[in-house]
Measured scan of single mutants.
Amino acid sequence: RLHIEVEGTELMKKLVEEAKRRNLNVRAKVENGKWIIEID
C-alpha cells in the first residue's frame, strides 16, 4: 500500500488517473487541507 500526501488538486488528479489506468485501488480524501491518497 502506498500512502501519499499531496498539496494541489491537479497533481492529485494525475496520480488518480494514472493509478486507475493501471487498475490499482485508489482512495483519496482531504485531511488538514492536503489530499491523502492511498493506492493498493
Rank of each mutant, 00 (worst) to 15 (best):
A19G: 03
V6K: 03
I4F: 13
A28L: 13
V6N: 03
M12G: 03
L15P: 00
K20S: 06
R21I: 08
D40T: 12
E18G: 05
K34G: 02
K20F: 08
D40Q: 08
I37Y: 01
G33F: 02
D40P: 02
M12W: 09
V16R: 03
K13W: 14
L24K: 05
R1G: 10
I39V: 06
E18L: 11
A28D: 01
A28R: 03
V16W: 07
E5W: 12
K34T: 06
E38Y: 11
V16F: 07
N25Y: 11
I4Y: 13
R1N: 10
R1Y: 14
A28G: 03
L2H: 08
R22D: 04
K20N: 05
N32I: 03
G8I: 09
R22M: 13
R27L: 11
I36P: 00
D40M: 11
E10P: 04
L24R: 04
E17G: 07
N25I: 12
K14T: 06
W35L: 06
L11E: 14
E38T: 13
A28Y: 11
L11R: 09
E17R: 13
K29A: 06
N23P: 02
R27E: 08
I37E: 00
N25K: 14
R22A: 11
T9I: 14
K29D: 04
V16M: 08
E18Y: 13
G8K: 12
W35T: 01
L15S: 00
K34A: 04
G33Q: 03
R27H: 13
G8Q: 11
R27M: 10
K29Q: 07
E18W: 15
I37Q: 00
K20E: 07
L2A: 05
E7G: 08
I37G: 00
M12N: 01
L24E: 03
R1I: 14
L15D: 00
M12H: 01
N32G: 09
R27S: 14
I36V: 09
N25F: 11
N23I: 05
K34F: 09
K29W: 15
W35G: 00
E18M: 12
E5G: 04
A19F: 14
A19P: 00
K14M: 11
L2Q: 08
V6P: 02
L15Q: 00
N23M: 11
R22K: 12
K29T: 13
N23H: 13
A19R: 00
K13D: 04
I36M: 05
I36K: 04
K34L: 09
E31Y: 09
E31F: 10
E38P: 00
K29P: 00
R21K: 11
A28E: 02
A19M: 13
E38D: 10
R27D: 05
E31W: 07
I36G: 01
D40A: 09
A19Y: 13
L11F: 10
L11V: 10
R27A: 10
V26S: 01
R1H: 13
M12P: 01
R21H: 08
K13E: 13
L24D: 02
G8W: 09
V26P: 07
A19T: 01
V30K: 15
E10V: 07
I36H: 06
D40H: 08
G8N: 15
R21M: 08
E17F: 09
E7P: 05
K14V: 10
R22F: 08
G33E: 03
R1D: 08
I39W: 05
E5M: 12
E18Q: 09
E18I: 10
V6G: 09
R27W: 13
I4R: 03
N23F: 10
V6A: 04
E38K: 03
E31R: 09
I4N: 03
V6L: 06
K29M: 08
V16I: 09
V26G: 01
R22T: 04
E17W: 11
V30S: 13
I37R: 00
K34P: 00
E38Q: 09
I37S: 00
K20I: 13
K20M: 12
M12Q: 02
I36S: 02
I36N: 02
R21V: 04
T9R: 11
I36D: 01
N25S: 13
T9D: 14
K14Y: 11
E10S: 06
I39Q: 02
L11I: 11
K29E: 06
E38G: 01
T9G: 07
A19C: 14
H3T: 15
H3L: 14
K20Y: 05
K14A: 11
E18A: 12
L11P: 03
L2N: 04
E18N: 06
I37W: 01
I4V: 07
W35I: 06
N23V: 03
L15R: 01
N32Q: 07
R27T: 15
I4P: 03
E7A: 10
E17S: 10
G33A: 02
E5A: 08
N23Y: 05
D40Y: 15
E38A: 04
W35N: 01
K20D: 02
M12A: 10
K13I: 12
N25G: 08
V6F: 07
I39A: 02
T9C: 13
V30T: 09
E7S: 12
R1W: 15
E5S: 10
N23A: 06
E7T: 13
A19V: 04
E7H: 12
L24G: 02
A28I: 15
R21L: 08
E5Q: 09
R21S: 08
R22L: 14
R27P: 01
H3P: 07
E5R: 08
I36R: 03
V6E: 03
E10I: 07
I39T: 02
I39E: 01
M12V: 05
E7N: 13
T9V: 14
H3E: 10
V6R: 03
I4K: 03
E17L: 10
R27Y: 14
V30W: 15
G33N: 06
R22Y: 11
G33W: 02
V16G: 01
V30Y: 15
M12F: 06
K34H: 09
V6Q: 03
L11N: 10
N32S: 06
H3S: 12
G8F: 11
A28Q: 04
R22W: 10
N25Q: 12
E10Y: 08
A19S: 02
L15W: 09
L24T: 01
K34R: 14
H3I: 15
E38M: 09
G8Y: 10
T9S: 09
K34N: 04
N23T: 03
H3F: 14
L2M: 07
G33V: 00
A19I: 07
K29C: 03
L15M: 07
R1F: 14
L24N: 03
R21A: 09
R27G: 04
L11T: 11
L2V: 12
I39Y: 04
E5F: 11
E18R: 06
G8S: 15
R27V: 14
T9A: 11
H3G: 04
V16C: 03
G33Y: 02
V6H: 04
I37N: 00
K13F: 13
A28W: 10
E38H: 08
R27Q: 12
A28T: 13
I39R: 00
L24I: 05
R1Q: 12
R22I: 07
K34W: 08
L15A: 03
V30A: 13
R22E: 05
I36L: 06
R22H: 10
D40L: 13
D40V: 11
R1P: 13
I39N: 00
I4A: 04
T9W: 15
N25W: 11
V16H: 02
L2R: 05
K34S: 05
T9E: 15
M12E: 01
N25R: 14
M12T: 02
L11M: 13
L11H: 10
V6W: 06
K14L: 12
G8T: 15
R21E: 05
V26F: 07
K14P: 01
G33I: 02
L2T: 06
E18V: 07
I36A: 02
E10W: 13
A19L: 15
N32T: 02
L24F: 07
E5K: 07
V16N: 01
V6M: 05
V26T: 01
N23S: 08
E31I: 14
K13H: 09
I36F: 06
V30R: 15
K20V: 10
K29S: 11
V26E: 00
E17N: 09
E7R: 10
K34Q: 05
V16K: 04
E7V: 13
L15N: 00
